[in-house]
Design a protein around this nucleic acid. Structure first.
Length: 884
RNA sequence: GCGGGUGUGGCGGAAUUGGUAGACGCGAUGGAUUCAAAAUCCAUUGACCGCAAGGUCGUGGGGGUUCAAGUCCCUCCACCCGCACCA
């Protein structure tokens, strides 16, 4: 047998063997613990990239490990197959989106299969298949009936040239990404999921997801954005209505000096009808971009409507009403009261429009600055209104509002009629104020959320059609369930931009299911996030006639381990959490939380290269010269930063080539080495070469050793020499360590342990029967421990070791507890905290004897220079520290 | 602005949660083998001083707690990520 490993041969051989044996077919076995491992399913963009390789390698290690540990494992794969790129391809190349998508799926499935993943391919699904989206349409109608879906007008970005709606990401500097034309805001009637019904639940339930990364939970928490505050009304003078305001700081009510409403507030719209200047101001606000930069630099501007609002606690106190560009319509009530002394933005506004600045609270013990002090310290006061001068804390509101960082620290309320000069933490002051306002029936406390309802209508072709028929007499009517699925027409015209569905000659024309009169289909399709919000449930029974099969989802769900990129930390994961709750309401599942465990893997990075004329160069184009310098076509190449692999920087490496050259096992092994899986990893040639050498070495060493090994079933010899005993200890420690590391997602540490064991095996010489036995045990264990990472090589080794069955069906090795406990330990001896010597002692030696042994060390004697130690600290099995 | 993270040799990263810093890999250097190269094997590899024995310094900077600090506390710096006109 050749000692050189032919990865092409063995990898396809074992993949075929697994396939034939049906190893990875998931089955519901009520007596056995189940484990559902899921990686975020890919978008079929054309080819797999290294990010996929990392994602699916991690998932496969977990799936194979859990299988070996005796779990009934579900590890499926599918395709998030709807989306805009397919339509772009249709427009650019004239291929139908379906054709493009299915061709990509074909290619990518083949690529994934070369990775040797333990996937149950019989459960494969594609979201663009009517077999999938018909159930999504059915659930949409269930949700509609349950009151979880509604329709309302909503603003969209409209490209006037392409006649299409743009996603926010497609608006660049206020212009359409494709047409370059300035984007307009338009109102369209659209469907919404009532995710806000679950704001509180989605927030509090985060506490019950201990196996989610803290970071993701925090991001979701911030996104949902809970804040405690109050609603207050400011009656308008000369009218019989009022402006309703939301505030988180009712305690500052007596510092109010103006009211402001959003340019989209109904009051603004009403006034603009008779006020041309206001109408112009509103139009100007709409023109200003919504990009971060525009917001950052935009001046706080307002338009004085001339209206006056009365202070809720003092009808005689009148506040001017502005329309202001910084007030958002979709948070709170779209109106605020401004407190210049407590908010920097309000202060800027007050200065601009010459409004009063009224103090409400100040630091405890602060006195007013004198005129002289204020003048003298003008510069410093501009930075901070609270200054120390002599022993005093001096307070003056100048160009900076006094905003206390913490609402827990008490402050002195100097001007709040309802707080009587109290010294209070703002949190408490807020509650007292709310009580006061509620008692007088001028306000009410409430909890406000930032989360908004999920608009799911998309004016595009390549998505699941919304199963609604619009009838001029009956309004929107659900498509009867017998008529599902509403399938996409295939004969569509992509020669013009925009959604081809409304232009299709026949598709939309139908009769109303209710009255039978002429009606039109809803020509919008669903946001692709809807498709990915329930696919994990469909995998449990992908052929079921209903969206889910309750017995299957009740057995498999929740997903025990979900793995994917951090970029989905908010939207996808939040939508899936909402959808699961909605599915529960409609009886499709019996759980609330879809993903019990979540792991977010890091990005793959690579060096970047630029040619002499500044173009990005791909790694393949760059040649490494003998002196280590880089060149391209004879010209020097500039080495750039290590950055996330991306098409635009051209620093990608094609997995297909890597797998062809080095094999899937090597690629998988390298993916797991070195970098912790949640951090970014750098792809290097040296790294993949190193991994490749290891796979070769393992195989070579096994072949060198195999002749001297006893048969597989040989009994443990009665006598083991010390070396054999030592090897056995290393092996069992490695078993325990690797198991622990895999469970904790510390694959890089597991890899390091396996390298270490391999080094020990290589250094071991079997000089006795016991030695040979221990060596066999070492090789058997090594083979099983590397199997989740390098499954093909492991099968080949298993076979070489004389086993008949598949390693993929074999059990995970168990560490023998008796071999994990050390007989002796190395004790470190410190003098004044500095290491001076080490010595070996029996494990669990008495403190007194350890102290005696430590003091007898020559180095310790020398350091003490004949003196007596002042103190000796003994930490059993660890360290002895002598204090001289 | 708000929230979060990271900082350890030439590089990726370990360090049993306060107890021998640098496991393991990469890279590098020297040697063996070879006609030669690749592969392989052996040795060395944090810095500094020293012929050596040995010593000093060392986990972003500064300070502190402790017999003992990469780990805990205070403070400063740098970089990265998320959200952001949120009342």
């Amino acid at each position: 047998m050749s000692s050189r490993l032919n990865h092409r041969e063995i990898e396809s051989k074992w993949q075929a063997a697994w396939d034939e044996a049906g190893c990875f077919r998931a089955s519901e076995e009520p007596g056995r613990p189940k484990y559902y491992v899921l990686e975020m399913f890919p978008y079929p963009s054309g080819r797999i990239h290294m990010g996929h390789v990392r994602n699916y390698t991690i998932g496969d290690v977990i799936a194979r490990y859990k299988r070996a540990k005796g779990f009934s494992v579900l590890h499926p794969m599918g395709w998030d197959a709807f989306g805009l790129p397919a339509e772009n391809a249709a427009m650019e190349r004239g291929v139908h989106p379906a054709e493009w998508t299915y061709a990509n799926i074909e290619t990518m499935r083949g690529q994934l299969q070369t990775m040797g993943l333990s996937i149950d391919w019989s459960r494969e699904i594609a979201t663009c298949s009517p077999d999938y989206y018909r159930h999504q349409q059915a659930m949409f109608l269930d949700f509609l009936e349950a009151g979880l879906v509604y329709r309302k007008n909503s603003w969209v970005n409209w490209d006037p040239v392409d006649h299409t709606v743009l996603a926010n990401e497609q608006v660049i500097d206020g212009c359409g990404w494709r047409s370059g034309a300035p984007v307009e805001r338009r109102q369209l009637a659209q469907w919404f999921f009532k995710i806000t019904d679950y704001s509180e639940e989605l927030l509090t339930a985060l506490d019950d997801l201990p196996r989610w990364p803290e970071k993701v939970r925090l991001m979701q928490q911030n996104w949902i954005g809970q804040s405690r505050g109050a609603h207050l009304s400011f009656p308008l003078k000369g009218r019989n209505d009022a402006i309703k305001v939301f505030t988180t700081r009712p305690d500052t009510l007596d510092g109010a000096s103006f009211l402001a409403v959003s340019p989209h507030h109904p009051l603004a719209a009403e006034l603009a009808e008779t006020d041309d200047k206001l109408a112009a101001f509103i139009a100007e606000c709409d023109r200003l971009g919504t990009s971060e930069e525009a917001i950052e630099t935009a001046e706080k501007r307002g338009y004085d409507t001339g209206l006056k609002g009365a202070h809720p606690l003092d009808p005689a106190w009148e506040l001017p009403v502005y329309v202001a560009n910084f007030v958002l319509m979709d948070y709170g009530t779209g109106a605020i009261f401004g407190v210049p002394s407590g908010d920097q933005r309000d202060l800027d506004f007050a200065r601009k429009y010459d409004l009063p600045v009224i103090e409400t609270y100040r630091p405890i013990g602060a006195r007013d600055a004198t005129e002289d002090e204020a003048r003298e310290h003008a510069a410093a006061f501009a930075e901070n209104p609270v200054q120390k001068i002599g022993d005093d804390t001096v307070f003056r509101i100048t160009e900076t509002a006094f905003v206390d960082k913490s609402d827990q620290q008490p402050v002195n309320y100097t001007n709040a009629r309802f707080l009587d000069d109290a010294v209070l933490a703002p949190v408490e002051a807020i509650e007292r104020t709310i009580d006061y306002l509620e008692a007088r029936e001028v306000g009410e406390g409430l909890v406000q959320y930032r989360l908004r309802d999920w608009g799911l209508s998309r004016q595009r072709y390549w998505g699941a059609p919304i199963p609604i028929i619009h009838c001029p007499t009956c309004g929107p009517v659900p498509v009867p369930s017998a008529d599902l699925p509403v399938t996409l027409p295939e004969d569509v015209d992509f020669s013009q931009p925009g959604n081809p569905l409304p232009r299709h000659p026949t598709w939309k024309h139908v009769s109303c299911p209710k009255c039978g009169g002429p009606a039109e289909r809803d020509c919008d399709t669903m946001d692709t996030f809807v498709d990915s919000s329930w696919y994990f449930a469909r995998f449990c029974a992908p052929q079921a006639e209903t969206p889910t099969l309750r017995s299957a989802v009740d057995y498999w769900l929740p997903v025990d381990q979900y793995i994917g990129g951090i970029e989905h930390a908010i939207l996808h994961l939040l939508y899936a959490r909402f959808f699961t709750r909605a599915m529960r309401v409609c009886g499709h599942v019996g759980i609330d939380e879809p993903f019990a465990g979540l792991f977010t893997q890091g990005m793959i990075c690579h060096e970047t290269y630029r040619s002499a004329d500044g173009r990005w160069l791909s790694p393949q184009e760059v040649t490494r010269e003998a002196d280590g310098s880089l060149s391209f076509e004879g010209q020097p190449v500039t080495l750039g930063r290590v950055e996330k692999m991306s098409k635009s920087k051209r620093n990608t490496v094609d997995p297909e080539e890597i797998i062809a050259t080095y094999g899937a096992d090597t690629a998988r092994w390298f993916m797991l080495s070195d970098s912790p899986p949640d951090r970014e990893m750098e792809w290097t040639d040296a790294g993949i070469e190193g991994a490749w050498r290891f796979t070769q070495r393992l195989w070579r060493q096994l072949n060198e050793a195999i002749g001297d090994l006893p048969p597989a079933a040989a009994p443990l010899p009665a006598e083991l020499d010390a070396a054999a005993q030592g090897l056995r200890q290393s092996v069992h420690k490695c078993i325990a360590g690797v198991s622990k590391d895999i469970e904790a997602f510390h694959f890089n540490k597991a890899v390091a342990r396996l390298y270490q064991l391999s080094n020990e095996i290589a250094a071991f010489e079997a000089s006795s029967l016991g030695g040979a036995w221990a060596l066999r045990e070492a090789w058997e264990s090594m083979t099983r421990l590397v199997s989740p990472m390098m499954p093909h090589l492991a099968e080949e080794m298993w076979h070489r070791l004389g086993h008949q069955g598949l390693l993929s069906d074999a059990a995970w090795p168990e560490a023998d507890g008796a071999l994990l406990t050390e007989v002796s330990v190395v004790i470190a001896v410190q003098v004044n905290g500095k290491l001076r010597a080490t010595f070996e002692a029996p494990k669990d030696s008495e403190k007194a004897s350890l102290e005696e042994m430590a003091l007898s060390q020559a180095a310790v004697q020398k350091a003490l220079q004949g003196g007596q130690p002042r103190k000796v600290i003994v930490v059993p099995n660890r360290v002895v520290n002598v204090v001289a």
